[in-house]
């Protein structure tokens, strides 16, 4: 994986840089947010490992900007920071000093997340109806439930929503699905409910500027989701299943 390492303490950055390279990763190391932004703009990373408190900002700012799986490290983590990191889909929130073994395990999870996300996009761009094709090596299919919902009338969409909605655990997921399904009068949503994650693909282009209703819906979806990727032909929405306050 190509990892962006952001750490202002020279000794820690060097040690982590060496360890990451030893574990077979390509590393782009930065001592501050500005350098990290420049490096990421040049070559987008697969994942980020960042200190929370940086000389020119917060690691969370970078995370919001880059939108890739990330690990945060901090010696002064507050509860609010941890909650915000979780809300943004942080793979791990590590307290410094970080044991190398712990970091290695976290990077393993980061890699899973990266592969998962790539897989999602590859499948979607291919126009497939499932998010789990092709099935990667070592992938436990039993842990994933995929539902493809297609409708041609709003009434049909509602019936389908009622069917699958009852299987969703949280209010947040249920509302997100409802908003997505109402964004298009006819269309397709693919829901992939993995352990701890929930992801949907809204096939079809939505004109969010069309009217206030569409803009309202866009705002709600953006608020409920941790990550939205809009591409030709549709939109992918991802959120962590459990969120404080949901």
């Amino acid at each position: 994986m190509r990892l962006l390492l952001v750490e202002d303490e020279d000794a820690i950055r060097s040690a982590l840089d060496r360890a990451l390279r030893r574990w077979g990763h390509e590393v782009m190391a930065a001592a501050d947010l500005a350098t990290a932004k420049a490096l990421a703009a040049e070559r987008p990373p697969d994942g980020v490992i960042s200190d929370l408190k940086l000389p020119d900002g917060s690691g969370l700012d970078g995370v919001r900007l880059w939108g890739v799986p990330f690990i945060l490290m901090s010696g002064f983590a507050s509860f609010d920071d941890a909650v915000e990191a979780l809300r943004l889909g942080c793979v791990d929130f590590l307290t410094k000093p970080v044991a190398m073994q712990t970091l290695q395990a976290s990077i393993g999870r980061l890699g899973d997340r990266c592969r998962d996300w790539d897989l999602c996009l590859i499948s979607l761009e291919g126009g497939g109806s499932s998010l789990i094709r092709p099935v990667p090596e070592g992938f436990d299919e039993q842990q994933i439930a995929v539902e493809s919902l297609e409708w041609t009338h709003p009434e049909e969409a509602y019936r389908l929503f009622e069917e699958i909605g009852s299987q969703l655990e949280g209010k947040r997921e249920r509302q997100l699905l409802a908003e997505l399904m109402q964004a298009l009068p006819s269309g397709r949503v693919v829901v992939n409910a993995a352990a701890g994650w929930w992801r949907a693909w809204l096939a079809g282009t939505v004109d969010w500027q069309a009217d206030d209703g569409a803009r309202d819906r866009r705002a709600v979806i953006a608020d409920l989701a941790d990550r939205i990727v809009e591409r030709d032909g549709g939109m992918a929405v991802e959120c962590v299943r459990t969120r404080v306050g949901s």
Binding site: F161, G165, K171, Q175, A178, E179, Q182, G213, D216, R217
Partner: peptide
């Protein structure tokens, strides 16, 4: 109230029993 339903109108709306409200009601 995630999906459009007939809306009860009143001088005061009591939302104490609302579980969730979809954006369709914003307009």
């Amino acid at each position: 109230m995630l999906w459009p339903v007939p809306i009860a109108e009143g001088a005061v709306i009591d939302m104490s029993a609302v579980e969730a409200l979809g954006s369709w009601v914003y307009a």
